[in-house]
């Protein structure tokens, strides 16, 4: 039997799971569920949860604690941890949130049409940094806080990927 702590959309689920010949015995926050799983190929599977049919696709690297579940036309992000480790972490008062990022990343893929700052400039919160054209619209990327521009990774006329590094603060 394995026990996990799963977080979906801000809701925590304590899940215990055991394999039986006829399916999986699942306890979800203490509620018993009988789950049958059929592989549909790759990361997709058909789940019958107490007979209720759901097609799901769980995507993400095999060691990632954050994954994305595609189901019913929706993309649902979820986190999973070993239950006991999660309890330990909680009592130690740690969070899983990453350290504050000094890197400005593209919120969307697009084309850089304007870079409004130069290396070494000090900027204040809310100051426009770059203009990205994505799908017909120009979007102004503003500084999230005060700082000095350490490095600029993009050029006017070049495209950026979603979450691509654009600029770094000191």
């Amino acid at each position: 039997m394995l026990r996990y702590l799963v977080t979906i959309d801000g809701h925590e689920y304590d899940i215990e799971m055991e394999y039986r010949a006829e399916g999986f015995d699942v306890s979800l926050n203490g509620k018993k569920r009988k789950v049958i799983q059929y592989k549909l190929g790759e990361s997709r599977s058909l789940l019958l949860v107490d007979g209720q049919s759901h097609e799901v696709d769980v995507r993400g690297g095999c060691l990632d604690s954050s994954k994305i579940i595609f189901m019913q036309g929706q993309e649902i992000p979820g986190q999973i941890e070993d239950y006991n480790l999660a309890q330990l972490r909680k009592t130690a008062g740690m969070t899983t949130a990453a350290a504050i990022d000094r890197t400005v990343r593209a919120p969307m893929p697009g084309l850089v049409v304007e870079v409004k700052v130069a290396k070494g400039d000090s900027v204040t919160k809310g100051q426009p940094l770059l203009v990205i054209e994505a799908m017909k619209m120009e979007n102004i990327i503003k500084a999230q806080g005060d700082g000095t521009v350490k490095e600029i990774y993009v050029e006017v006329g070049k495209s950026v990927e979603k979450a691509g590094k654009m600029l770094e603060f000191e």
Partner: peptide, 25 residues
């Protein structure tokens, strides 16, 4: 726009746990 209902959330949670469980197994 999207209001996930309990069933969807719970099923997503089970899917995630099952994914991890099967890898461990």
């Amino acid at each position: 726009f999207i209001q996930l209902d309990d069933t969807v959330r719970e099923t997503a949670a089970i899917a995630l746990a099952l994914d991890k469980f099967l890898r461990a197994r």
